[in-house]
Design a protein around this nucleic acid. Structure first.
Lengths: 197, 197
DNA sequence: GACCGATTCTTACTGGCGGTAAATACTATG
DNA sequence: CATAGTATTTACCGCCAGTAAGAATCGGTC
């Protein structure tokens, strides 16, 4: 008898070993089962991706809470959060790639669905904080999606492209998010760069 | 005789009509050709996605330049840029989805490749600006990837999930990017929200 | 212990798609 | 008209997600 968890574990193992392009057959084999069992327990490929995404999200949250710990300073907490995210995603590199790919045409909708799971609770916290600060809380949802997208992209880049320390990247991102492009004292009025999208 | 451009046009048409999950066969048919011709002119599926991404990027840049126009104020330019991006991507919704999906396992690498095309030139501008401001320019690349990811995610969300005005979303994002989470005067010291990733 | 229904697993298959090789039509040139 | 070379299509392969129908197994009942 093989339960859902067992299959998800097997999926994680084979993904870690063989990369994000794994076939359902390979996962079934790793779990010592046949394909229809996987479909019976988990569902279609996107369901598998969702389930693994949930696991990954749990680990991210757990790691973030541990990293933030007792830090009270806002900016310091932000750095710890970002750094924790970077490192946790690097730790589960292939899983992250599998989840962010998922293949299939409706991938973007799934990306959005995943982002929503992070962004919605974040938005609640953010809105409450803004409110307590006496500022407009209506920005919370948009900011949260933005934050999730930012972290996603930078993680993707950092994982596959560079080896500069997570600490540095986290610090730099925190600087942007905490103080903004135009934050801090300026020597003289200037124009922002002509960014290209 | 059918040239590359003709096929790319056909691809855009059929993507706009039938969504991002189009088969190469469908594109060939729309172009009045057979599949091997598409492969001869364009290459594999990822090459097609890259080519279309290039077109989309061109339109984004063009629209951004038009939108920014003669605005000189930094924050105002930022708002215009973001808004232009949102609206242009909404205009080419299915194409955007096709490009950001591309399917196949190496999707994340492609996402990164696409992001790189935007982030690299942006980083140059940003670094120059920071330097002129007498600040540390080494943040430029990280910030650029972050900015691209943020805009991507928010665009995806805005396109498919909501109907609040682009103007509002752009304003809110600009506020975050320009002034930051901790920007502006604070009434009293506080902790940031316990964000979850 | 033998029969039987229900449930669980497996074998075997379908449909569709990306990608390609081999066959075919077409064009230019002598 | 022949022939060489090129452009195009037909026909195919391999792969994989997803499923249907058959095979085995288990639980209960007389």
């Amino acid at each position: 008898m093989v339960d859902r968890t067992h299959i998800l574990d097997a999926a994680e193992r084979v993904i870690r070993r063989d990369g994000a392009g794994v076939s359902i057959d390979a996962i079934a084999q790793e779990a010592g089962v046949t394909k229809p069992i996987v479909y019976a327990r988990i569902g279609k490929r996107t369901d598998l991706a969702d389930a693994l995404a949930q696991r990954l999200a749990d680990r991210l949250i757990e790691a973030a809470e541990a990293a933030i710990g007792k830090r009270r300073n806002g900016r310091t907490r932000l750095v710890a959060l970002i750094r924790s995210n970077l490192e946790t995603l690097a730790e589960h590199r292939e899983l992250f790639l599998f989840v962010s790919s998922g293949a299939s045409e409706e991938m973007p909708q799934r990306t959005l669905y995943l982002a929503e799971q992070s962004a919605t609770p974040m938005a609640e916290q953010l809105a409450a904080w803004r409110k307590a600060e006496g500022r407009d809380p209506s920005v919370a949802l948009v900011w949260s999606y933005g934050f999730v997208g930012l972290l996603n992209m930078v993680s993707l880049w950092w994982i596959t492209e560079t080896d500069r320390p997570a600490e540095v990247v986290a610090e730099q991102l925190a600087e942007l998010l905490w103080s903004g492009l135009g934050g801090g004292p300026r020597k003289r009025p200037t124009h922002p760069p002509r960014v290209r999208s």
